[in-house]
Write a protein that binds this DNA or RNA. Structure first.
Lengths: 225, 225
DNA sequence: AATATCCGAAACTGCTAAGTACCGTATATA
DNA sequence: TATATACGGTACTTAGCAGTTTCGGATATT
């Protein structure tokens, strides 16, 4: 039905910044007004909001247009279809992720992990997981979208964890034989499951129980009783 | 839009086995043919197949009817709506889960966990996760459905893990302070994420890496190097 | 065998939402 | 300032699907 051809989407996911070279070159406009691409991020953000609230199939273009205070035609002038819009919106999310170089270094693995638990992170993570839930139904229809979702939503978190653990190894805090690849995915995976299925909050208590009940014990670090 | 009122669904999720007492008592049929409820499981199974393949919103009643070689009217004679049908189908899945009493007891926690890795389990789990993905978009619209999904799909797995760990505690193999609640959800959560987003197989190797790289280390059991 | 009822198939209704076309207005360019 | 174009808004077209109705044929009950 709403079958999307992935290559088409993946070839031009940068519609946001691309200057529409084809159209403009063809019609050679010398006069008049140019497209106001400064509003694109607002529209994409509105799309993400609606996506998080209603899911892909429940979301309508009119909802997005209304939320962004834009005309429906404007949206279709920039994205050829609803699917393209959503994919672009999700893909552009990954720009707003952590800068790996300026993460705190507290001196201990536990300190690093706990330092990541902040109201802002929790809130932000919750929204991303809602978006992931909204896109879920598309995943089975469009192979390749899964990669975009992974790269934009979960992978950033996992890579932060991976970095903390590598640091801990360099520090001599944990064994270099630890299965970092698997361990770094535990928190993202469990947070996703907890939000999407259990409908329980991914709060400080939950995150601490993973750190102190799973990650650190698995790495051979004795937790403060 | 497709807003479902949860109470309605939860009050009568047993449409399958209920003998339609109201209708039959009212019209008092003495002659003719009775409903062939023997086909209900086939229809529900067809619904689950379509659900796994296309997701809730992509699935149409015609698809289910066609797959079950039944008329669309027949489906509507038994379930009042698409939502009811799907909910019933998901709810009835939990009947086909493990019998907790006749699980293997190998004498060690690792033995028990590894004994659960069988081709059949893997295959079965994959389908359940596909179904879960298909139902995902409904979750945000119908509070209460999440419980049904959890009870039918993931909880059975988690409870097996929980039981193995309780046994291990009784055996003195692991500390009674272990955070069993959290640990028993690791495998289901990570399997879900791996299937739905990563699109990688939940195979023997993956499951072993969780057991030997996460669960057993977290419980203080040294893995055979 | 007679009959009341269920069955599968298919036509039909009504609604929702994607996508398009158009309009009067605002605005960046020349 | 003049103009071509994009803008927001709205009306429209179209397609797909949930749910209903109808019908000839099959089938269990009496």
């Amino acid at each position: 039905m709403t079958q999307i051809d992935a290559p088409d989407l993946l070839d031009a996911p940068d519609l946001l910044d691309a200057p529409d070279s084809l159209d403009e070159a063809a019609s050679a406009p010398k006069l008049g007004r140019k497209r106001d691409h400064t509003r694109d991020p607002e529209i994409l953000d509105a799309a993400l909001d609606v996506l998080a609230e209603t899911g892909y199939d429940g979301m309508t273009i009119d909802m997005v247009a209304a939320r962004a205070k834009a005309g429906k035609a404007t949206l279709y002038r920039r994205w050829p279809s609803k699917a393209h819009l959503v994919l672009d919106a999700v893909a552009c999310m990954k720009q707003s992720t952590y800068d790996l170089d300026q993460l705190p270094d507290t001196g201990t693995l536990r300190g690093d992990l706990v330092a990541m638990i902040k109201p802002h992170s929790i809130e932000d993570g919750e929204r991303k997981l809602q978006i992931m839930a909204g896109v879920m139904s598309m995943l089975s229809r469009d192979p390749g979208l899964a990669d975009v979702v992974n790269a934009a939503i979960v992978e950033p978190r996992a890579s932060v964890n991976r970095m903390f653990m590598r640091r801990a190894i360099a520090r001599g805090e944990i064994s270099p034989d630890a299965d970092i690849e698997t361990l770094s995915m535990i928190t993202p995976s469990m947070a996703a499951y907890r939000t999407l299925v259990l409908k329980k909050p991914v709060d400080r208590e939950f995150l601490l129980s993973i750190i102190d009940g799973v990650l650190l014990p698995a790495l051979g670090i004795r937790t403060p009783a």
